[in-house]
């Protein structure tokens, strides 16, 4: 398991776009964020994962300068997002988990209005095209579908050519095609050097985009690091089913048996030798391993392990 503040493995020495140190946030007696730290460099994507209520939005609101921290500090290019809001906002864009737009403006009017409030807006038509709303430009916002509205939201979030973007569940409610479109948009910004902090409940989205990931539980970071580092905290899984009457296979030393016969589930950190041993045994005894499945450790597995309290409750 990685320490909660694992340093990014690459690109050290570059200036930090985002630096969060021991951040805390409370609602009354309830502490929703309990001391989290992370850093994001330009051109890097950092994903904050966690079950509902883990504290992702609460943490991001402080980063966005919409709430003050109960403890700890947040810096965006070295500046305080609340105290130096004007300066920070000129370089920062954000997409809230839920936000509203007046229903009686058209898409184009909405984007044009927002552009008029920004120091360095990108081209309005181009921004609309980028989120696939060109055909809907003259439609009132109230008539948009949920996914279309979300994409309009996103267009506004990145309209000011931000150097840091905070995206709270950017693709929730989007169809698979739109989701990919959003991924491309994010990837383009990252290629241009933008630092991205995002949350998502779609783990494949984090796998697709994130350079580094932190998994949050009850306001604390339980696991963090690159996807590989996080996955490595989890064992690989081997599953197979044996017909009645077949002999039981010998259990290799590196295996933890999660479920034995007839539906076997083995966990192991040495997938290849264990699998080789199993297959050799099956060949030797002429046994059929039905539904044989071998899965390398994944981000999803680590996520579930955290959610179910199998990892890091001591943290």
């Amino acid at each position: 398991m990685q320490p909660a503040t694992a340093a990014p493995p690459t690109r050290s020495g570059e200036p930090l776009a985002v630096e969060v140190t021991d951040l805390r946030r409370s609602y009354g007696d309830f502490e929703a964020v309990r001391g989290i730290s992370f850093e994001v460099r330009p051109g890097e994507v950092f994903a904050l994962l966690g079950v509902n209520g883990a504290g992702k939005t609460s943490a991001l609101e402080v980063l966005e300068g919409l709430a003050t921290p109960g403890g700890g500090t947040v810096r965006v290019f070295g500046a305080d997002p609340v105290r130096d809001r004007a300066a920070v906002r000129a370089r920062m864009g954000m997409l809230l988990q839920s936000s509203g737009l007046p229903g009686d403006l058209t898409v184009a009017e909405t984007v044009r209005t927002w552009a008029g409030t920004l120091s360095a807006p990108r081209d309005v038509d181009e921004a609309i095209a980028q989120v696939g709303l060109t055909g809907r430009a003259d439609v009132r916002v109230r008539s948009l579908s949920g996914g279309e509205r979300r994409r309009l939201d996103l267009a506004l979030a990145v309209l000011g050519r931000p150097e840091v973007v905070v995206l709270d569940e950017p693709t929730t409610g989007l169809d698979p095609e739109s989701r990919r479109q959003v991924w491309r948009l994010v990837q383009d910004m990252v290629d241009g050097g933008t630092a991205v902090v995002l949350t998502t409940h779609h783990l494949e989205e984090a796998e697709e985009l994130a350079d580094r990931v932190a998994i949050l539980k009850a306001g604390r970071i339980v696991l963090s690091g690159t996807q590989e580092e996080i996955a490595e905290t989890q064992p690989a899984v081997v599953r197979f089913t044996l017909d009645a009457g077949t002999p039981e296979p010998p259990v290799p030393a590196a295996v933890q048996v999660v479920s034995a016969g007839p539906r076997h589930e083995w966990h192991t950190r040495a997938l290849q030798p264990v699998l080789a041993e199993l297959l050799a045994w099956a060949a030797e005894h002429g046994v059929v391993l039905r539904y044989l499945q071998a899965t390398a450790a994944s981000l999803e597995q680590a996520f579930l392990a955290v959610a179910e309290g199998r990892v890091g409750d001591a943290a």
Partner: peptide, 16 residues
């Protein structure tokens, strides 16, 4: 505007 989350959204940009 507050209940429609429009105010909060207007605060996400460069407007004070």
């Amino acid at each position: 505007r507050r209940e429609d989350l429009v105010l909060q959204r207007m605060r996400t940009g460069e407007l004070s």
